[in-house]
Nucleic acid binder design. Sequence first.
DNA 1: CTGGAGCTCATTTTT
DNA 2: TGAGCTCCAG
Length: 677
Amino acid sequence: MSKHVNKLNPRQREAVLHIDGPCLVLAGAGSGKTSVITRKIAYLIEECGMPARHIAAVTFTNKASREMKERVSGLVKGVAARGLTVSTFHNLGLNIIRREHKQLGFKPGFSIFDAEDARALLKELMLKDGDLDSDHLDLVANQISNWKNDLTVPEMAASKAQSTGEAQIAEIYRRYNQALKAYNAVDFDDLILTPVRLFSEYPEVLARWQRKIRYLLVDEYQDTNSSQYLLVKLLVGDRGGLTVVGDDDQSIYAWRGARPENLFLLKKDFPSLELIKLEQNYRSTSRILRVANHLIAHNPHEFEKALWSEMGLGEEIRVIRCANEDAEAERVAMEILSQRLKRQIKFRDFAILYRGNHQARLLEIKLQAHQIPYSISGGTSFFARAEIKDVMSYLRLIVNPDDDNAFLRIINTPRRQIGTSTLEALGHYANQRQISMFAACHEIGLAEHIPAASLDRIQRFCHWLQHIGELCRGAEPVAAIKQMVEDIDYEGWLHQNASSPKVAEKRMENIWYLLESIKTIMQKADGEEITIEDAIAKLVLRDMLDRQAEEDDLDQVQLMTLHASKGLEYPHVFMVGMEEDLLPHRTSIEEDNIEEERRLTYVGITRAQKTLTMTWAGKRKQYGEIIETSYSRFLDELPEEDVNWEGMGQHNPDANRAQGSATLGSLLSMLGGAKPK
DNA sequence: CTGGAGCTCATTTTT
DNA sequence: TGAGCTCCAG
């Protein structure tokens, strides 16, 4: 038997060997799904003789795609792996659009608007419109994204509108798309949607891509939305060269348009689908899995699945009642300190998981107080920082002069004495002539609308930027960008504006870090030539940023949301805030979305390898007032015999559910609540 | 254009 | 409670 399968268990082996038709692998948490995908790729290349360039593996995150690339290159050596596609959905979409940009009517160097850019554009459109105020920004942005993910074009949205409100949003949607087109830009959703439309409209283009991608593997399939599924379906065609791996119990992104039912739809679209379940878990103790299975059994299931492991029974799950959220954070900190000594383990063996980012703040304070090193993943992203957005806008404008949004962001940053009236006149002129603002700057006719002094300043800026652009396409792009930052004296501008020199220095450091990243990306050109356009696109798609990698090696407790923890594992896991209104979150209770919250809890539990500790606070400060809480309903869904309850006296669902039983715990909580701060 | 007072709104967020 | 915003006075 092949070397690629003899380390696998029988189910995994079956999943790797089944190549004569579509294959759905239901892979429970920790069941070795990445092994299956990577070994299947190796098997296809080395045993089936399929050239690597005809195989594509698609993931959702850059992290997953990076890991997959690494693991494949460990299995398939050298030239045999050349041309293999391992990328995120969005990256694949980007590559398709790039190759076919002419057909699609995009100029090369088109911009990619991230979520933030898209919102900024929407805000502007809504402001101009007046019908909708920007209070609804979130709603509108979400609705448009949902429409795009469900393949609904503006005209369809308008005709299906149920209310005037919806019709208004549909109108904004139309203008939003129009603006993107004018800016020669796409948003994240378009990266998937555009290839789908292309393939539906041009069968010959689709055929070409089908010839290229003969075998497709998709990771985390439960997270696909409608347009992603359609993209998969189109690429696979009726040849059935498809393996998808997923777990319906780990679907936690339905609120973002993911369609976990895509897992079962597969059966309809591919009748010959082979279903393989991976139930052996290589991560956790049997106790942890029993608890996880017991919990998730409360959800309805299309496919029954029960995880098991050979890792031994393991310790009981602890559920700890704390007086309030302060005591909870304190308790977790103390647990980490004592467990670390008792078990002789590292800080990095611990993770603290929570529902909402705001819960991290108190934990941070307590960890700091006890000098426990930690790192938080998530929070304000690097790319949300104003200085990064500024430099990125310069770069975007260099690559795509039609990007009016980028133009407007940086035309007067740093100050160039180009005021609103000048820009209004310029915008008006550009609009009339149906050209971009940058292009309008070069027109002779503009002199009639703008005072000579302003015009001169604007044109000097444009010429300078063009000059930098030429340098960027030369031999030393990074040097050119550095030159650009120096030309505009961005550093001086930062110092002038920042509240302290320290802040300015920090911001400048971020910019140097950005330039370093660009340098790395351009150097990593293994064989293929990477243009400045590619580098910027990679940055916008958050690819190739090795921030996290440095931190992974440090000995730090990991703090993150339950969502962010998917796919990760830690020896000792704390889940905090196990309360009604928090873990099932209140809005989910109101919207009757308990099942997804239960899956979220399931994801949290299955992150743990050795021990799992859940905490909850009897009282919690919420919007400034102290609220009596009751513990999460999910705690009652855990098997009694595997759980050790602390601070609640005898655990008794019926009596304890409501307040009032005079247990030691409730007495303590009364003390805690009454104590002055 | 900046800074401070006042108002309002509180999930999750792979790309 | 407190972060993030708008709005108005300088």
